[in-house]
Design a protein around this nucleic acid. Structure first.
Lengths: 333, 333
DNA sequence: CTGTTAGCGCTTTCAT
DNA sequence: ATGAAAGCGCTAACAG
């Protein structure tokens, strides 16, 4: 209940000046042993911890970074956040996480908010705002962003090879003998979805298969959309032996759609996703998918940001996507 | 690149005193229209936003709350965090989220950290630390915690009825004619797991069925543990027609175990979980489970904390657990 | 209604 | 090696 003790209280109790206490706290200068001991005892006794707001105000560093996600409860972002969190451990930095809800305007609002809070840097995950906006904000604080290419001194981007990931997925299906491959895509205008579509088309083209737009159905990157998309395909009597879902969540929905119709996976139809969410190892059957290095992206983005904050430069790369073959794909009969 | 403008800059540009700017910012006192307009123009032009660290230092309020979770990437906490996030919207508060990693000591560390950051309050989700520790911390800042009963002026607890939830689950199985019901429990010494075990025992007792400890296998509240637990049951040739998993994640693992063995769910064995994670609606088949009001818990905890911070009192209750019947349970043949 | 003044708790010259 | 003093950006009396 007592008001938290201040550095001045500690100084008084230890019989030294505030500057001395500060020096000990920060290791800024040599202090005689006796004073050091007295101060440390006082700190201990008063259970003192420096007021970070005062420190921040003075030093111009809040020791806080801002993270912008699009959905605070999505396995996709969580896995990345875990990478962020682990990398922050022991650095003295904490993070405040805000959500842009897949909305560019809200995203701008949130970033302004973070800036007013004097975060020392920002990590933007799957941001909707333009590169120009980012660059503008980067004038205030360093920013690292996923899902785009960016290489200035204070703005960095890490982009995943969506096209190649999709190519790998469809290529896998083709290698298993599939020719009629449905595609559950993401929301229209979504960049990732478009790139994955391109990979789908390339793999098909390479095998001499024409893209049949009747076999591509729009989902929403969530289970419900994946389920409905596949449903539409069945309703219009499309014939296919495999489906490539633009992300794992959509694949889960597609899976349920087939379960409801009594279609066996992979015996009747093969299914492949994209992301490799933590849960995909435990679906029934475990989902074949394309792995995005989500955890590593969080880790690398964070380390990069920390380096930018220190005025350093960054050369890191994120690992490539890779195919993870599990049990929802099989050779076509 | 230019240093962010300060309130003094704004004052100077508008030709007024800093206090006037502050008054306009905070609506603290009446200001003549001409000055207000001049100031607002200056704010606009300079793109000024008050430095929250300075505000915080002065007002003794950081407008930040701390959230302690145990796992930053778990659907369980995510859903609760979504409730927290939604409730914070528009309040001016932001949250910094830290993880205790299911470890009491780390939890204490993290809470101290939050306190040094001068958070205005703390939400503790599934904390491992003792009530005494909480009460001690509550002397500094209000705390609301899930998973325990607490009713002081600055410390509040919201506890879920685990025992009853488990009772509901097992009762449902019994109503379907099941008599030999396996239980995949949580980690030993886990309080939630123990309470769910009690509910399991009560439902059995009520039906005149003896608890057979050979039918209870210890999991770890994760998929892997659930899978292994069920595996052990099969290896020792236990006979059962239904399994109650102490949480949904364990149920997913159990489900996979049965898939691997060619056991059909629910035709051969019924399965029920506990939590109703967002993903449980899309497992194959969709999981029957006991719903914890995770989102509401986040929402209510947050609203309660905000009220405590304002010095108010709280009478809210969290909604009760409820059975969600989906497709993994059926009448025993 | 508005300006002046005194800090919030800490760090950092500048002396000594 | 240590203390005194100034000040980070803002707000809140206190005058007027």
């Amino acid at each position: 209940m007592s008001a938290p003790s201040t550095l001045i209280d500690v100084a008084r109790m230890a019989g030294v000046s505030p500057s001395t206490v500060s020096r000990i706290l920060n290791g800024t200068a040599k202090v005689s042993d006796d004073k050091r001991i007295a101060v440390q005892a006082a700190i201990e006794k008063m259970n003192f911890a420096p007021n970070q707001m005062a420190q921040g105000l003075k030093k111009g560093r809040s020791m806080t970074i801002g993270i912008v996600v699009q959905d605070i409860s999505s396995p996709f972002f969580d896995e990345t956040l875990r990478g962020v969190d682990d990398s922050l451990k022991g650095t003295g930095f904490a993070s405040v996480i805000v959500s842009g809800h897949w909305n560019a305007e809200e995203e701008v609002q949130r970033i302004r908010l973070l800036l007013a809070r004097k975060v020392d840097g920002i990590i933007l995950l799957s941001g909707r705002i333009s590169d120009e906006d980012i660059l503008r904000f980067a004038g205030t604080r360093p920013i690292v962003s996923t899902g785009r290419e960016l290489h200035t001194a204070s703005a960095l981007g890490f982009k995943l090879d969506n096209e190649n990931g999709a190519y790998l997925a469809v290529r896998h299906l083709i290698d298993l003998g599939h020719r009629r491959i449905a595609f559950v895509t993401g929301p229209a205008n979504n960049n990732d979805a478009a790139e994955r579509m391109a990979g789908y088309a390339r793999a098909l083209a390479e095998a001499g298969i024409e893209v049949n737009m009747n076999l591509v159905a729009e989902g929403d990157f969530h289970e419900a959309g994946g389920m409905q998309a596949l449903n539409r395909l069945f309703e219009t009597n499309q014939q296919f032996t495999a489906v490539f879902a633009a992300n794992d969540l959509s694949a889960y929905g597609a899976r349920l759609c087939m379960y409801r119709k009594g279609i066996r996976v992979p015996d009747d139809i093969s299914l492949i996703g994209f992301d490799d969410l933590p849960g995909s190892e435990y679906t029934t059957p475990p989902l074949t998918t394309v792995r995005q290095p989500l955890y590593d992206m969080g880790r690398i983005a964070t380390q990069a940001l920390l380096r930018l904050i220190d005025g350093g430069t960054v050369t890191d790369q994120i690992p490539p996507v890779e195919l993870v073959v599990r049990e929802t794909t099989r050779r076509v009969r």
